[in-house]
């Protein structure tokens, strides 16, 4: 009987330990993703000068677009942080609101990126034009795919939050999502620096 009374607490403690272990595992995933982007950055840096007579970054990159993308993603990194704060204060509505804001900003970022890619392809600068453009589309596109997956993940989280509320499990999921989103912002900062700013220099 006594054991029956104790067991839910023990169980709760056990799940919490498991959840923090899952967050630790998520960190390992992020580090492996750092390696993926690291190799793509290496390819880009090596091939950036090989334009095959085609357009260079200076001719292709539009300053207002990538400046806007940068501040949109930076702000969305901040809003996903606020969502975590709201979650820690056990405010379900606030958490969902700030996740939706993150989602909208992420969508705006993706819209600008797709627009940029379409314009470039229309101008005849596609993935097969030169080694520089192959590296460019692979590197920036991989980041874009990550953002797309983040958006679907965020939609799933919002649905789950509405259904189950803030529990140990949804808390861990939101924590991991915000880690992922901050990570994507960091990758973008390096894309901005190495690809865009150095490209228009």
């Amino acid at each position: 009987m006594a054991q029956h009374i104790v067991s839910p607490e023990v169980h709760e403690h056990h799940t919490q330990e498991q959840e923090s272990l899952k967050t630790a595992g998520f960190w390992l995933f992020l580090v492996s993703d750092v390696l993926l982007f690291g190799t793509l950055f290496a390819v880009y840096v090596v091939l950036v000068g090989h334009t095959n007579g085609g357009p260079t970054g200076k001719e292709l990159f539009e300053i207002p677009i990538f400046v806007a993308s940068t501040f949109i993603l930076l702000t969305s990194s901040f809003t996903s942080g606020i969502a975590v704060l709201q979650m820690q204060a056990n405010k379900l509505k606030g958490t969902i609101f700030w996740l939706v804001m993150t989602l909208l900003l992420g969508g705006a970022f993706l819209f600008l990126e797709i627009e940029e890619f379409m314009t470039m392809v229309h101008e005849g600068a596609n993935i097969g034009t030169s080694a520089f453009l192959s590296a460019f589309f692979t590197l920036v596109g991989t980041h874009g795919i990550h953002v797309t997956m983040g958006i679907f993940w965020c939609i799933g989280l919002i649905l789950q939050l509405r259904k189950r509320g803030i529990t140990t499990v949804t808390k861990r999921k939101i924590t991991n999502f915000s880690l992922y989103w901050h990570f994507l912002d960091v990758i973008w900062i390096f894309l901005l620096s190495v690809v865009y700013l150095m490209g228009v220099m």
Binding site: V31, S32, V34, L35, F37, G38, T39, F41, A42, V43, V45, V46
Partner: peptide, 14 residues
């Protein structure tokens, strides 16, 4: 560790 590997890959490739 990831940072060391990335710096090695990027700097080594260049």
């Amino acid at each position: 560790l990831g940072g060391i590997i990335v710096i090695t890959i990027v700097a080594g490739s260049v």
